[in-house]
């Protein structure tokens, strides 16, 4: 039960993008098309899950026993950067079109604050190993959900007559704000 609550808390109630405002860069940058947005969501989810596992292991098996908690930022960034490199190579191998569609935003997962935030939240909230994994999956699903909804709206928006000053980034930010308001409706349902 606890695990399911953690999952939904990360995915919906405390959505990383729409309630913590982490990972806005790819959220705005890759939300032009549903297909590439969804793939970006999957790539981010993958990195999040692996990162939550590896950072948990590193923190509790290496950093804690040797009193090296002050190294958590550096080591987490190291883990995330390596993982992103790996994911990039992997995607380039299996799907060139997807690699091109994600473009510069793929290496930018490295500096995606959502992932570092996830790793730090897991430590901060003292989740167990399994809880950490569920939290990572939930956060990834939440990110995918948010970016896919956004892409859906933006695809429709291409056909709409948007006033010239609002075209492009401004209207996207406005929509992100309204989406965040909608997700505010869930706040308080689960307090984690």
């Amino acid at each position: 039960m606890e695990l399911i609550l953690i999952f939904f808390s990360a995915a919906i109630v405390n959505n990383f993008v729409l309630s913590y405002f982490l990972g806005i860069c790819p959220f705005i940058g890759v939300s032009n098309k549903i297909s590439s947005a969804f793939s970006m969501g999957l790539a981010t989810t993958f990195v999040m899950v692996i990162a939550s596992i590896v950072t948990w292991l590193i923190y509790y098996l290496i950093l804690i026993p040797y009193d090296l908690e002050f190294l958590q930022y550096v080591s987490f960034i190291l883990v995330i950067a390596s993982l992103v490199q790996f994911v990039e190579m992997f995607i380039k191998k299996i799907s060139q079109p997807l690699y091109r569609a994600l473009g510069i935003f793929l290496p930018l997962i490295t500096t995606n604050c959502a992932i570092l935030g996830l790793a730090l939240f897991i430590v901060l909230r003292e989740y167990s190993f399994i809880e950490g994994i569920f939290y990572g999956v939930g956060a990834g699903v939440g990110f995918t959900l948010a970016i896919t909804i956004m892409a859906g709206i933006r695809e429709e928006l291409d056909l709409a007559d948007v006033p010239k000053p609002f075209k492009g980034a401004p209207i996207t930010l406005l929509i992100a704000g309204i989406l965040a308001l909608a997700f505010m409706g869930f706040s308080g349902l689960i307090t984690f």
């Binding site: 290496i62 040797y66 190294l71 550096v74 080591s75 190291l78 883990v79 790996f86 190579m89 992997f90």
Partner: peptide, 24 residues
């Protein structure tokens, strides 16, 4: 300890990436 830990971690990740680079 900090130096060896970070160095070791870096080395492990670097070698994993190097292998992955060859494979992929």
């Amino acid at each position: 300890i900090a130096l060896t830990t970070m160095g070791g971690l870096g080395f492990i990740f670097a070698s994993a990436l190097a292998i992955a680079y060859k494979k992929l």
